[in-house]
Design a protein around this nucleic acid. Structure first.
Length: 315
DNA sequence: GAAAGCACCTGACGGC
DNA sequence: TGCCGTCAGGTGCTTT
């Protein structure tokens, strides 16, 4: 599935192929993928056709493209096309002659450019993702909304509540630490809550906790500052390595969110390794095996030795 | 108000 | 071979 590093690869691809281009047509073969655009298909089309994409910005797994009716006027944008890839979404830059994908949901046609295909297609098998047009509002901290070329301190209204992601240069560890201490919940539950920190999904939560030698049910109110730092540094490390790997295999025309290939190329220490030897214990001559627990209706992978369950666990 | 539970969705896979 | 149940999980809404 697309995780934060894959979404960043998509952002860079879109920045190259789509930024600065005018939208000339929009079609929505499956309206379920724009269900977050409450005013419907015609309003969605009307808000896009004739506008120009100014930039491609990302915070966590949210992507947005600030729009302008007249790019010759240097003004801050007011609206944006927002995209979330969900579990299976893909944004593909293709020529109109390319056969339609089985799960094609939305097509955007751009003004022609000699060196670039004219269509951006949103393809989504499981329809957890989607597109919508919304207003941009000022960021709470007055700093740039996310990763992008522009430095507008703006963010889509619907994404304004989410925290910055660990790869964001404006990420504030101390603020996160204080929020975690004030909350009475387990650490993994908090890491998956985008209001605390965005961009961490089930895979990176397990990997970061393994690297930090911390059990997923550790109560957040017991965290010390070095604990929070260990988790964030670990998540940064694993996501940066995944981003590097995604970057090297990046197929620039197909704005690649092939989650499966990217995911399996990573070296994971916990996620999906039930019954396999813990790499860290193995190095110490132990034969501990990774355990899988059901947690939040999902799977949670951990080492029972490196990540012992606390007595005051918050499940 | 905070925290937890659950629905959304479809393809892969295992069991019968 | 075909049917059925289970599983995967990010987000937002509902329930406790």
């Amino acid at each position: 599935m697309p995780e934060l590093p894959e979404v960043e690869v998509v952002r860079r691809g879109l920045e190259r192929w789509v930024a600065g281009r005018r939208i000339v047509d929009v079609s929505v073969p499956d309206p379920r993928s724009i269900r977050r655009h409450s005013l419907g298909v015609e309003d969605f089309r009307g808000n896009l056709i004739g506008t120009t994409v100014l930039d491609v910005v990302r915070r966590g797994k949210f992507l947005w493209m600030p729009l302008s009716d007249d790019p010759s006027v240097s003004d801050t944008p007011h609206t944006a096309l927002v995209a979330h890839l969900g579990m299976s979404g893909q944004l593909l830059v293709e020529s109109p002659e390319q056969p339609h994908e089985k799960h094609l949901k939305v097509r955007l046609s751009f003004s022609s450019r000699a060196d670039a295909p004219e269509e951006l297609r949103f393809v989504d098998q499981r329809i957890f993702g989607g597109l919508f047009v919304t207003s941009l509002v000022p960021t709470a901290d007055g700093l740039p909304g996310g990763a992008g070329v522009s430095d507008w301190a703006l963010i889509p209204e619907e994404a304004a509540h989410i925290g910055r992601d660990p790869l964001d240069p404006h990420f504030d560890i101390e603020a996160l630490h204080q929020k975690l201490r004030a909350r009475k919940t387990g650490i993994k539950r908090a890491l998956l809550d985008q209001a605390f920190v965005s961009g961490i999904g089930n895979i990176y939560a397990d990997e970061a906790l393994w690297a930090a030698k911390m059990h997923y049910a550790r109560p957040t109110e017991t965290l010390r500052r070095p604990d929070t730092e260990r988790i964030i540094y670990a998540s940064r490390d694993v996501m940066s390595r995944a981003l590097d790997a995604g970057g090297t295999s990046f197929d620039s025309l197909y704005v690649n969110v092939n989650g499966a290939s990217g995911y399996f190329s990573r070296s994971l220490n916990a996620y999906g390794r039930e019954g396999e030897l813990c790499h860290r214990c193995e190095g110490l001559g132990l034969s501990t095996r990774i355990r899988r627990d059901t947690f939040m209706n999902r799977s949670s992978y951990s080492c029972p030795v490196c990540q012992p369950k606390p007595r005051n666990a918050r499940m």
